[in-house]
């Protein structure tokens, strides 16, 4: 067990966990930030996507000890009231069915749009291809990414 100081959603948080613990479980079990989801544990589904200094990463493959001073953003820290343009676009298109994968989808979309504010359809498809939606809401996800890009 070791102590780690993490900068999460603009706040400093201290946790005492095994150094190999993936960020995913630190967020979920130790910090009550359960918006970041467990889906596969092998970085194959995207449900656990968070931002490290604005870059989308798979928190299930990120040992807490590897994080130094990077700023971590989770779905809970994306906006105060769910009014980030990507969240608003998600609501406008009423994207979710079960909803489980959507925070990972949104985190991937936000980081992608920061890099590429005016993406083409194939670029969106490529950027969002790592996030599985078992309910198959892909068309709405793509439409919401486009709406967010235009807002």
């Amino acid at each position: 067990m070791a102590k780690f100081n993490l900068n999460i959603n603009g706040k400093s948080k201290e946790v005492e966990v095994d150094a190999a613990t993936p960020l995913l479980w630190v967020l979920r079990d130790h910090l009550n930030l359960t918006g970041t989801k467990y889906g596969c544990g092998i970085a194959a589904c995207g449900a656990c996507t968070v931002h490290l200094d604005g870059v989308a990463v798979r928190s299930c493959q990120m040992p807490v000890s590897n994080i130094e001073n990077q700023k971590i953003t989770t779905i809970e820290g994306l906006s105060e009231n769910g009014d980030h343009p990507v969240q608003k676009a998600w609501l406008e298109h009423d994207v979710p069915q079960c909803g489980y994968c959507q925070s990972g989808q949104i985190m991937t979309a936000v980081a992608f749009l920061k890099e590429n504010p005016n993406p083409s359809d194939p670029e969106i498809e490529n950027a969002m291809n790592g996030n599985i939606c078992r309910c198959g809401t892909y068309l709405r996800i793509k439409a919401a990414v486009k709406t967010a890009a235009n807002s």
């Binding site: 918006g35 809970e76 769910g82 009423d94 979710p96 925070s103």
Partner: peptide, 12 residues
């Protein structure tokens, strides 16, 4: 709209 939409997109 989905009554849980806001909770879903904010990770509640």
């Amino acid at each position: 709209k989905n009554v849980d939409g806001l909770k879903i997109v904010t990770g509640q």
